[in-house]
């Protein structure tokens, strides 16, 4: 299996007037092709910092991060620009990276069509529902043809019912586009419903407490996983590791 991302002995410390805080201590893990890996940990443990380091928004203090592919980043909020139409929003990444071409535009159109958004191309974000906005946001990320998606709690801003639909949506898009994903979350059922491996993290300084391999076939959608008997077993397992 091809290795898309590998973190080796990563250490990150934040400095402030109050002193220094070691957020990440000697963290190593890999993400391979066609798998979804979840990072689950208590709030404020520095999960999002890992994604910021991978996306090079912050510099690390020790260790290294090796990425072997184009990376897409999806946020907690949809972050659509309210003054641009859905289509313009989706083209934003291509325009900024100066990769707008007939080919990339056609590809974006095909994504819009495939995921049922072409009707809404000239709408403004405020005219769409929360779930649809998140889907637009995902297509914006996909238009850059990433192989690895970084998902920073992308469902936590949605209401509980929409969340289930969007999780189903995102998982099927990941499968359809043959992507890998690194999902950061504090929601246990979300991690189990979406991923093949769950990395359970400790509070600061962040370390991997336990790695849990799920036995589901990776094409099994969240709704079906939730019905499986092993789901609650995994839930308890993760819960106990997190809290004891």
């Amino acid at each position: 299996m091809k290795e898309l991302l590998s973190l080796n002995n990563v250490e990150k410390t934040f400095f402030s007037d109050e002193g220094e805080t070691k957020v990440i201590d000697n963290l190593s893990f890999k993400v391979f092709e066609n798998e979804v890996v979840s990072l689950i940990g208590p709030s404020g443990c520095g999960k999002s910092t890992i994604l910021n380091l991978i996306a090079k928004l912050e510099n690390l203090n020790k260790g290294n991060i090796i990425t072997n592919c184009e990376i897409g980043y999806m946020f907690q909020k949809d972050n659509l620009l309210p003054w641009l139409t859905v289509y313009k929003n989706i083209m934003l990444g291509l325009e900024i990276k100066k990769r707008k071409s007939k080919e990339s535009e056609d590809y974006t159109f095909s994504l819009l069509k495939k995921y049922g958004l072409s009707k809404f191309a000239s709408y403004y974000p405020e005219e769409l529902s929360g779930g649809m906005r998140q889907r637009v946001s995902l297509i914006r990320t996909l238009s850059l043809k990433p192989k690895l998606l970084l998902l920073d709690e992308p469902f936590s801003a949605l209401d509980s019912q929409t969340r289930l639909f969007v999780q189903e949506d995102v998982k099927s898009i990941i499968l359809e586009e043959k992507l890998s994903s690194l999902l950061v979350t504090h929601d246990i059922s979300e991690a189990i419903a979406l991923s093949e491996r769950v990395l359970i993290l400790s509070p600061r300084p962040l370390k991997i407490k336990k790695e849990l391999k799920l036995s589901y076939d990776n094409s099994l959608l969240p709704s079906l996983r939730r019905k499986d008997n092993s789901f609650s077993q995994y839930f308890n397992d993760v819960f106990n590791t997190l809290h004891y």
Binding site: A55, L57, Y73, F75, N79, L81, W83, G93
Partner: peptide, 26 residues
Amino acid sequence: NLIKLMRVLNANKRQILFRVILPSNV
């Protein structure tokens, strides 16, 4: 968050200014 999005997309300062800061402050 919008500025972070631009940084993830590797936008330069000029792009951040004209695509996010000025439009959101019209």
